[in-house]
Design a protein around this nucleic acid. Structure first.
Lengths: 273, 273
DNA sequence: CTAATAGTGTCTATTAGACAGTATGTT
DNA sequence: AACATACTGTCTAATAGACACTATTAG
């Protein structure tokens, strides 16, 4: 037994405990506009995710979420910020911890525990070109009772994976996820994508995080379509406008040039301030 | 550049990356009954948490959440299960990952990243005596606009700490927490306690996790008081009974012996099955 | 009888869902 | 004029909140 904390710390040998490496992976989500041939129709919105192509083993040539090793002198929350800046040159972005994955065999190199984060951005604000191993993939998914099929598309490649959902014991309406099929994405990154989307889906109704994905000024039609693509269902106009009424304020600008009645432009207004 | 994954892995040296240790800490929550002098009145319910007293540096003689180092050959989710069994001899318990804390200075010995978990139990089901450095503390807290004062009491000692709450930028109704004052609890464990309570508070209204804290059979009055202590507000009887109506089913038993009309005993019924 | 909780009926207020209608730009 | 979206009015359904009332036991 030691007499004092100093004495204890001096005698302490970190090598006495198992040591491992940690990484942070970021799910960077944004909204993409798909212009439609008919000039009158509004653009189709999709969720999209930034992936990078691995140029070395393990998982060489597969796509994965941007990530990197945690430095020994770096706070855990600083790590995703650093990676985000490396990939997008963006700072002060909405960032939220998702989940920590720590299966023994999840990285073939050695024991690596990974904490995943979700970042929400408006990708139109990106000023710098992405590095040429990075690409935005539009997300589409189809859900049935027990599985979800994902299709990620960047215009050239389509990545597919299938997730199995299982209800928690003694809990309704919340799921545990498991990878059923995945050939195209590295590591356990499909699980990060599904947890992030679920988190976003839940939070959109009781927080204002969606505005992190919107431009400064937007039409209510655009905002509604973003809600719809995240919630994966149609909303009725009057109900939607009631719900967001106190989160937005009208600007003096209008959006013209579409093949129909011009829409007023709104901006975010924090209802609590 | 390597020709194959095997070749790459053979040449791979884990020492090339910073290495650190990980721990898992568990917030074990239960409900305690405080018998009241007046024989007619029902018992007072409180949330309670299992703490252990540290018998060595760092934080010698302070109380902390049960925790331990992650083994190199152990999946991250197995670690809290092992600790839970060590402390309570319980298996197959509701367990949920809360948050991963990874500040550089959070452990004075060395760099330690800790993933926290929440376990919900009915402590009356414990068959074995706790080890003599472990104790249940009743939780009381008082909230105002920016701070929360916590008082944890095990009948002999009262531990106090104060948490500061800050609204997330561009998000309403969700808080970031920070320790303002803490003399009695080791590490950053006050943050684990507040995150767990917040998580439980949110989840109680859209899941059935509360039944993990209840005995097999219970009265609706008891169940309502558990909801009230978790949500930290009074509920109206008819509204409460409407909400839980399809989650419980009446048994043939009744609870007599209290100084008033006997109450029917109910048990949990999963409404989705 | 009384104190205390158990349990229910019902009215009201609020919120969500549905539908139909009017408005106004572009081509 | 026709199309497509913008935007609003209003009815209905469902849910939440409030209060009052009856029921039943131990002591």
């Amino acid at each position: 037994m030691f007499k004092s904390e100093e004495e204890y710390l001096k005698a302490y040998n970190p090598e006495d405990f198992d040591r491992l490496s940690m990484t942070a992976d970021i799910l960077i989500l944004s909204i993409s506009d798909e212009v439609v041939s008919n000039y009158r129709k509004s653009s189709n919105k999709k969720m999209s995710v930034l992936l990078v192509k691995r140029d070395d083993y393990p998982f060489k040539n597969k796509w994965c979420l941007p990530g990197g090793f945690l430095d020994i002198n770096e706070d855990l929350e600083e790590c995703p910020k650093r990676i985000l800046q490396r990939e997008t040159n963006l700072k002060d972005i909405y960032l939220e911890q998702l989940y920590t994955f720590g299966g023994v065999k999840r990285d073939p190199r050695m024991r690596v525990v990974s904490t995943s984060y979700m970042a929400l951005i408006d990708k139109n604000k990106l000023k710098y070109k992405l590095s040429n191993n990075a690409s935005w993939f539009n997300i589409e998914y189809f859900e049935d009772k027990n599985t979800i099929d994902f299709y990620l598309d960047n215009g050239q490649e389509t990545l597919k994976f299938t997730i199995k959902k299982k209800l928690y014991e003694q809990t309704t309406d919340r799921y545990k996820f498991e990878i059923l099929k995945n050939e195209d994405l590295a590591f356990d990154h499909p699980l990060v994508i599904i947890s992030g989307i679920e988190r976003l889906k839940n939070k959109i109704s009781y927080t204002d995080i969606v505005f992190n994905m919107m431009p400064e000024e937007f039409t209510l039609g655009d905002l509604q379509r973003v809600y719809e693509v995240i919630l994966n269902k149609k909303l009725l106009d009057p109900a939607f406008r009631r719900i967001i009424a106190d989160k937005v304020e009208k600007t003096t600008h209008v959006q013209t040039g579409a093949g129909h009645r011009p829409s007023a432009l709104f901006k975010y207004k924090n209802p609590k301030r």
